[in-house]
Computed example of a mutant assay.
Amino acid sequence: MIVEEKKVTLKGKNIFTTESGYSFDELTIVYETYGKLNKEKNNVILVEHALSGSAHAAGVHPGKNNVGWWDPLIGPGKYIDTNKYFVICSNFLGSCYGTTGPSSIDPKTGKPYGLGFPKINIRDMVKVQKLLLDYVGIDRIKAVIGGSMGGMQALEWAVTYPDLVDKAIVIAADYKLTPLNIAYNHVGIQCILNDPYFYGGDYYDKPHKPDKGLSTARMLGMITYKSGDLFDHRFDRLRDENNFEVENYLNYHGLSFINRFDANSYLYILWAMNEHDITKPYGSLKMALKRIKAEILMIGIDTDMIFPSKYMKDFIKKLNATGGCGRFEEISSMQGHDSFLVDIDKIGPIILGFLEETYDKEMVCV
């Protein structure tokens, strides 16, 4: 499936205002679409990417060999069948893959925003996506789906825009981070802030960038994305003459990450994840849950150390207790949190069944 990256720049006085109070007069959004929008415009599936992902969820760009990060799931005849559905995925606000973020040029100064970029949260990201859907002419979403931070966005869609979303599929995610995950993110943040070449976020025209800090933060993240069983199976205590193989693995991912990601973006995304909580505008979880009209599917992973299944199960119980319609499924995988990117043969049939409603709804909405 050959696809092309699309870009729209929205302009206008206060075109978008963040919850922190910053108003943009210009906002660029990068996105991709797969399949065709039907006449009724009721076949839309919105895909949300995770922390370091992009709008390139499926297919291959012309002349390139860059397969989308969820390509085994999305495409003609696949679990999310683009012969049937119109799929759209946008790069979220604050990232560094085309949508406005800290590395973008601030029209007011002619220089990159850096740490002058406003503090953002996941609701801001979702609201920017809503601007994109308005631009494309979409006012109904059959399903919104994402894993990890993408799952957090999918759930936020169901809360913020309850009348637009029919179904939300939340994979390896919850409505807020645990203190342990905030702690992991805090260490990653400090790695970057304490890099001697961070320059207060104003490093874009400097000869050196905070590569060591970003690389170390990524290595920490890679540890949390996997499971102990996977590390045992893949690496054991094997080593070359200099390092353990697991050290080589982390070093590789840390170094490769600095070639494709921006340190300021990493900071803003981690800050947004840490602060996220669907209850904040409504005062309590119960009040937030009462807003949800969509059917919710949560898929947990039994070895996920970032979003353990027990929290997702508890969320579904509370949702159903308030009159909502939620379902929880768990897959078993050695992959840990990253299973949502790897084990498509396990999550795909569950997603397909939920989209096509080939499950017993009486067992779900209780």
Rank of each mutant, 00 (worst) to 15 (best):
R327Q: 02
I192T: 04
A288V: 14
F328Q: 03
T17R: 14
T82F: 12
I74W: 06
G201V: 02
I192N: 05
L177M: 13
E295A: 11
E330T: 12
G63D: 13
K111L: 12
P62L: 00
M305L: 12
N274L: 01
S256V: 15
I15Q: 04
H276P: 10
I145G: 03
K13V: 09
R291M: 06
V128T: 14
E275K: 14
G228R: 12
D124H: 06
P107H: 08
G101T: 05
G353V: 02
W69G: 00
G137S: 06
N181L: 06
V170M: 06
E275P: 08
V144R: 09
L10R: 06
S104D: 03
N248D: 09
E295C: 03
L46H: 14
R260W: 04
S104N: 04
G59C: 07
Y31S: 09
K127M: 09
E40F: 02
P107Y: 06
N320I: 02
K39A: 11
A158F: 06
C89H: 10
G63K: 03
E5P: 01
H253T: 05
E362W: 00
V159F: 08
V342H: 04
D240N: 15
L73A: 03
G336A: 08
F328Y: 15
I120D: 07
A272K: 08
I122Y: 06
D360W: 03
L46R: 13
G324F: 11
L46S: 10
S309R: 12
N14Q: 11
N91Y: 03
I299K: 07
L250K: 06
F261Y: 15
D211Q: 10
E4V: 08
F354E: 08
I278W: 00
D106Q: 07
C365A: 05
L267R: 01
I2T: 15
G114D: 09
G110W: 09
A217D: 15
W70C: 01
N243G: 00
D134E: 15
